[in-house]
Write a protein that binds this DNA or RNA. Sequence first.
RNA 1: GCGUUCGUAGCUCAGCUGGAUAGAGCACUCGCCUUCUAAGCGAGCGGUCUCAGGUUCGAAUCCUGACGGACGUACCA
Length: 565
Amino acid sequence: MKLKEQLNILIAQALAKASIDTTPQSVSESTKPEFGDYQFNGIMPLAKPLGRNPREIAAEVAGHIDCTTLIEKVEIAGPGFINIHLRREACAKMAEDMLHSDRLGIEPGEKPCRIIVDYSGPNMAKEMHVGHLRSTIIGDTLARLAEFLGHEVIRQNHIGDWGTQFGMLIAYLEEQDISSGVDLRNLEQFYKDAKKRFDESEIFADKAREYVVKIQSGDTHCLGLWQKFIDISLGHCEEVYDKLSVTLTKNDVKAESFYNDMLPKVIEQLDNSGVLEVSQGAKCVFVDGSEIPLIIQKGDGGYLYATTDLAALWYRSGELRADRILYVVDARQGDHFKQVFSIARSSGLVKEDIKLEHIAFGTMMDKSGKPFKTRDGGTVKLIELLDEAVSRAKTSIKEHENKSPETIEELARIIGIGAVKYSDLSINRESNYIFDWDKMLSLDGNTSLYMQYGYARIMSILDKHEGEIEMKISAQSDTEAKLLTALLKFDDVLHKAFTDSTPHTVTGYLYELVTLFMRFYESSPILRDDVPHETRHSRLSLALLTSRVIRQGLDILGIEVVNRI
RNA sequence: GCGUUCGUAGCUCAGCUGGAUAGAGCACUCGCCUUCUAAGCGAGCGGUCUCAGGUUCGAAUCCUGACGGACGUACCA
């Protein structure tokens, strides 16, 4: 149901009939209702090369546009715009087709890609904090979106489980009496205690450093302790993923340590391809004249995260055979990824035609525009933030007396978690994100609760209606027609969100859709006795299709809906 | 210093592959519940798109520069 594509084909045919040889720009949605549903602005740029008056060209092209199927009529306006009015019956037919399809008429693409989405990536030394929220939410949505569009998605959770701090943690763990049950429920505290010990005792610090070497050289006992620690820490993460309804599982974990054996080979490969050079004692790669190199191996022989990232690229390209890799990582690492991608290509670590993308996002700020912290300046634990979202949602629920405690719990969870996710996804991911409880839990404006409320309103009608719905649509009023055309845009919107990796394209669309539905709802009675049979079923069909688009759209965003709110 | 990025209504944000009179929400003012969830809908108010040049038939959008903010910048990740 790619509406734009269909229109573009009709335009291209008309241009060909007018003997104009060009690759036309795409039609776009009309900026004003009086300009029709879509507009084609591609005539004006042709005026100069053709040496003709743009309005004349527009008239000629417009004359060739097929107005017997999808398009009702076209109009020429201004300096050479072609305004396109869609045929309502054709739109109604397409909407009916959507209703008859499990996938809302969205067919998997002809050439599905294998896409790796690298997201979340928590550090095992500490509990997940708000810094992991955006990557986790955005990455999960991109994975779900690609999957829905028929691509093969491989999720990768590149957890930090390898490095100097683990020596300290294992040494501290060893010091405790494990048999008596070490309290690792509060990982944050454990880390702080170990750090304190590290700073206070020279002997302990030395021991910690020894442990790093022991782990990395494969000492069984130390690896056992390390594994125990990682398991517990990963358990914390899974609790968060579960609460967030994020699709990551243990199977998606590919930790830093996984690449350990590959690191010397990466160095070798870089050396063989001739990009490696030694500078100030460290093995480096200088990317196209940049003064600052990417350091691959430290002077003391140690590896760095850049080395691991290169190994991961190698593995993902060679073993996993990815066509496209998305790194959903903080925007501050932009320079790092630019270098890593460039080196991976120039040294032949990845296939030539692979697409490597850093899906950057901005920092999470508090209401006053400062980085998001606790009152005393510490990091906010993710699990606590999510619990707060649920408890805030609970207090905002109205009509408590008509609902069972279980219903309220469930409702609060769906509203609270939905609000956290939606507010994050609804802004352009690259700008900094201002985290505001009141705004995200509001019903007004572009919020998840508004979408969920719209959905519940529809479900209420569908529940009250008895018998089958005859899926026959005839949009009579202006509000109905607007809702109808909005529904048809779903496919185009998802594809745009996919190619640009912009979830906020989806939220923006859903908001527009639900707004149009609310207007329709206010102005167009459905179940009232005086509504004619045909009208009722047409409106029921529109409502049903709207509910399905909302549900599917929110599902891609990882947000649940409820039938009653 | 260099680099990346951002600057649109009082606030939070859309719009940016150049197109017609720059859009939402909040806030503020006003109207709409005997009819499917008023947690809703409608109307009004609110703009030198930071500034200055340039390209163009046409610039919030592209280019250059200035100013302001955020971030990054050699062995942490």
